[in-house]
Write a protein that binds this DNA or RNA. Structure first.
Length: 467
RNA sequence: GUCCCCUUCGUCUAGCCUGGCCCAGGACACCGCCCUUUCACGGCGGCGACACCGGUUCAAAUCCGGUAGGGGACGCCA
């Protein structure tokens, strides 16, 4: 194990969304690549908005993706005493001070500053305050350095420099005595010995403040890597109105975890022209320095393509297991029907999602109770009946072992009667599946079994005859 | 408004650091053709981008400056 220690630190105010998942993935990949440690930390200092349900949802998402963590989950809410202790330390050292300005006063000042086009920063009213009013509510503010600049070398974006005068004295402890985010993060990352902080782009502006805190506290400053955001198709920050954003929603839509992971890793990161990565390849090739600097648009089409790829190349047995819930949610029972694994094999090349596969699998278990009339209308009634009986006869009188042999039988029927394959295959496909979009007839017949195949053809024969 | 960041095909991106091999490569999508009993898979081909303006240079997507556009942050949220 190397010294590298990274963490994923979501706040439990919702489910795990794809942006968070990608951040988690990058952290996880870097840890795996460097033999480091990946830590999961729940940032629940906002007691109001944090929920147990969200924690569970996040853990569920992480587990589904297979992003297992080495340490944690740790909860910030368990560390309140630790934060308090460090606030006191700063207070004692004169690096922090009590501020008695009310929230209302601050709001007013902020609005005024915005209106006048000034930077809405704290004006330092209590910074040099001599008398400390007794029993008055106060917040604790960090006494930020006044001049100079704070800079850091971002692993993704390069050197970023902030003039210190842009940074005001941030609140590190609220009136109610609870610590604030920027302070907790620093204490946690320092006490967990985090060496590399990989997080969303939206934290770039917090970084200089946090660096100042590290320095005031005497902690070593970690390295930072800020990953760009994920946008919706309209280039606005990805949100629910762009469609699903929760990783669990993608699971429910029939995506494979490896497909989502592969999609996510290529969103912002690249390794030459490579598109498909196994987990091992991802780990081996991942380099935080190859993450792009600009935001990227989430594109479901490409995700679908990847999903189709992984479905095509997955073990049918595993797919069968994963398909089961999608089948039963459609009220389909596989009991007494064809072997699900055999069914999956006929569908692997034709489905982009498990949901689509389930839809296409239904006819195997529920014989069609209606037929695609438009497709049927293309054939003459007498001709249809002749074809169907020729096929049943052929099928009933021959022993077949695999799909190719069945197809051979159909060719025989064609040549014996002078028919074209289109005249024979299509009606039978409709008889077996109800429609025209299905696997090859040989595949269907073998999967269904000759007995059931013949039964279905006869059923349509009756249907056609009775018209 | 202020600060920070970003800008190559519709989308994801390679190339940019270490100028010439780039009249810019790959992938998704789209279009066409082939394969084919349907739907798919697959194969082949096509469409399509260096935001703009200056500068440096024999030579710039690549270096420098500016402009425009986009995003983010400015909270007793995280």
């Amino acid at each position: 194990m190397s010294e590298l220690r990274v963490r994923f630190a979501p706040s439990p105010t919702g489910y795990l969304h794809v942006g968070g998942a990608r951040t988690a993935l990058f952290n996880w990949l870097l840890a795996k690549n460097k033999g480091g440690t990946f830590i999961l930390r729940i940032e629940d200092t906002d007691v109001e908005r944090s929920t147990k349900e969200s924690v569970d949802a996040i853990l569920e998402g992480m587990q589904w993706l297979g992003l297992e963590w080495d340490e944690g989950p740790f909860y910030q809410s368990d560390s309140f005493p630790l934060y308090k202790e460090h606030v006191q330390k700063l207070l004692d050292a004169g690096k922090a001070y009590k501020c008695y300005c009310t929230a209302e006063e601050l709001d007013a000042k902020r609005n005024l500053a915005m209106q006048e086009g000034r930077k809405p920063k704290y004006d330092g009213t209590c910074r040099e305050r001599a008398e400390q009013p007794e029993g008055q509510p106060y917040v604790v503010r960090f006494r930020a350095p006044q001049g100079g600049v704070t800079a850091f070398d971002d692993l993704i974006k390069g050197t970023i420099t902030f003039p210190n005068e842009e940074l005001d004295d941030l609140i590190i402890q609220r009136t109610d005595g609870t610590p604030t985010y920027n302070f907790c993060v620093v204490i946690d990352d320092a006490s967990m010995n985090i060496t590399t902080v990989i997080r969303g782009d939206d934290h770039v502006n917090n970084t200089p403040r946090q660096i100042q805190l590290y320095e005031a506290l005497g902690f070593p400053v970690p390295q930072f890597a800020h990953v760009p955001m994920i946008l919706g198709s309209d280039k606005a920050r990805l949100s629910k109105r762009h469609g699903a954003t929760s990783v669990i929603a993608y699971r429910d839509m029939g995506f494979l975890p490896e497909a989502l992971l592969n999609y996510l890793v290529r969103l912002g990161w690249s390794h030459g022209d490579d598109e498909i990565f196994t987990m091992d390849e991802m780990i081996q090739k991942f380099d935080i320095g190859n993450v792009g600097r600009s935001a990227s648009v989430f594109n479901t089409e490409k995700l679908l393509w990847l999903n189709a790829h992984y479905i095509k190349n997955s073990d049918p047995e595993r797919l069968a297991d994963l398909l089961l819930p999608h089948l039963s949610s459609r009220g389909v029972t596989t009991l007494g029907g064809p072997d699900l694994m055999a069914v999956v094999k006929t569908l692997q090349e034709r489905a982009q999602t498990l949901v689509e596969m389930a839809e296409r699998a239904v006819f195997y278990y529920n014989a069609p109770d209606s037929y695609d009339e438009a497709a049927l209308a293309k054939f003459d009634k007498e001709q249809l009946l002749a074809v169907l009986s020729a096929v049943t006869e052929k099928l009933s009188s021959s022993a077949v072992g695999d799909a190719a042999e069945v197809d051979g039988l159909f060719k025989e029927v064609c040549s014996e009667n002078g028919w074209k394959m289109g005249q024979v295959g299509q009606p039978v496909r409709i008889a077996l599946s109800g429609g025209t979009q299905a696997p090859g007839i040989g595949e269907i017949a073998i999967t269904l079994g000759v007995t059931e195949t013949v039964r279905r053809i006869k059923r349509m024969q009756e249907f056609v005859a009775g018209k």
